[in-house]
Design a protein around this nucleic acid. Structure first.
Lengths: 220, 220
DNA sequence: GGTTATGTTGACCGTCCGGTCAAGCTTTCC
DNA sequence: GGAAAGCTTGACCGGACGGTCAACATAACC
């Protein structure tokens, strides 16, 4: 039945990697399902059975790959934190302040639009006191904020933007942009629309840009 | 042993109300404990046994007063929603825009400082899609936002503040102020302080005021 | 081809949780 | 004083959940 030629390449990397490849695909499959279920139900509310169902795999298989529910959750969070941190790239000393902040705000808003579950998951974890993430928040995130705050302080010293406490400015931008993912339900109900679409995100971007750029005297 | 004089006032309201009084006190006692536990662990993560322990009562007693866990949670949410809504009182047509918005922002910030658990509880519910609150959000909250948005639109038409979409302005203010309660863990870790105190909230108020008032051209 | 390492899976287990209940206690009312 | 109504509580129940395991399947290696 099988007419493929015999394989004479026992050391071929494509063959050697077959298991590793499947292994990676399974992990990604489980993580994707876990993101949906954890975001919708929270850590406690989500069940391994529900995640297994969403992934189309038996429950015991998840335990084979990740050991425990908590380890699966932690793996997911670490993956998402990388995304979270990467959005600050626009803020560099040689950039124009207004353009850099606008790019940053647009990037965060786009993330809220495209990956709302990821944002919700993150919010949930922080809301609970970040039991699995506090080390990363106190480490990598803090360092990043310090570095980017130094850039903003430089711009302030040069008179290129109003003087504010940069870290609180970040808190404000994070809050305003992530609210369109985390509090999507509330925004949807207040606006009386079935779902947040292009128009709502455009209005959100416009509002956040006006407050941040206007508040920092970056636009007349 | 008991030398108190016999009670000749069978119709006295103070006596008639004794049970009702105790009943109300028990309810408040349970609700206060529930607020702590639900905020710390979320709806699914909280157990009736934990709430009972925090309240210093046997678990069966909670069920006597509230029936089910969900009913207890719903009773708590309704109570908190009233607090939430009452903060908008500062925004009235005859007020000065800058003063009204400043009072509103300070009120919301004060609430984040004094009742962080309540804010977290609310955030948790909305994050989950507001299964028990969507009716109130689509009803009372929406009406209130519409009414207050009309006030802001009036000010804009009179040229007393910059023209923005008022509902999105509310989303931004809610997000920025509540983040000091909901994301307190993250803010604490980034700022590298053991707890958010007077100084941190002052800096937060200053930042939010600058963005909102500056963004709306209400201060030079 | 045979042996070993790696994956897969249904069945099972101990624990915890929301909720119930019956028995007893306290207040109210006559 | 005594009956009725309301409140308190320890003990219990069924179900769901995280996690384990042994048996089996597949791929890798010699």
């Amino acid at each position: 039945m099988d007419h493929r030629p015999p394989d004479h390449r026992p050391l071929d990397h494509r063959l050697l990697g077959r298991r590793a490849q499947q292994r990676q695909q399974r992990r990604a499959q489980i993580l994707a399902a876990a993101e949906q279920v954890f975001a919708a139900a929270g850590f406690e509310g989500a069940s391994m059975a529900a995640i297994a169902g969403a992934a189309g795999l038996p429950k015991a298989n998840l335990h084979y790959y990740f050991g425990t529910k908590e380890a699966l959750y932690a793996a997911l969070l670490e993956e998402l934190l990388q995304l979270w941190l990467s959005a600050t790239e626009a803020i560099r000393p040689e950039s124009e302040p207004a353009a850099a902040l606008e790019a940053y705000i647009r990037a965060k808003m786009a993330w809220s639009r495209r990956r709302p579950q990821a944002s919700k998951l993150f919010a949930n974890e922080v809301l609970r006191g970040a039991p699995l993430l506090s080390a990363h928040l106190a480490g990598g995130l803090r360092e990043l904020v310090e570095a980017k705050s130094a850039v903003l302080r430089g711009w302030m010293a040069e008179g290129r933007m109003a003087a504010v406490e940069p870290r609180h400015l970040f808190f404000a931008i994070w809050a305003m942009t992530q609210t369109y993912a985390d509090f999507e339900t509330q925004i949807r109900l207040v606006l009386d629309v079935p779902a947040l679409g292009e128009a709502e995100f455009e209005a959100g971007v416009a509002t956040v840009l006006r407050l941040v750029l206007g508040g920092l005297a970056l636009r007349a």
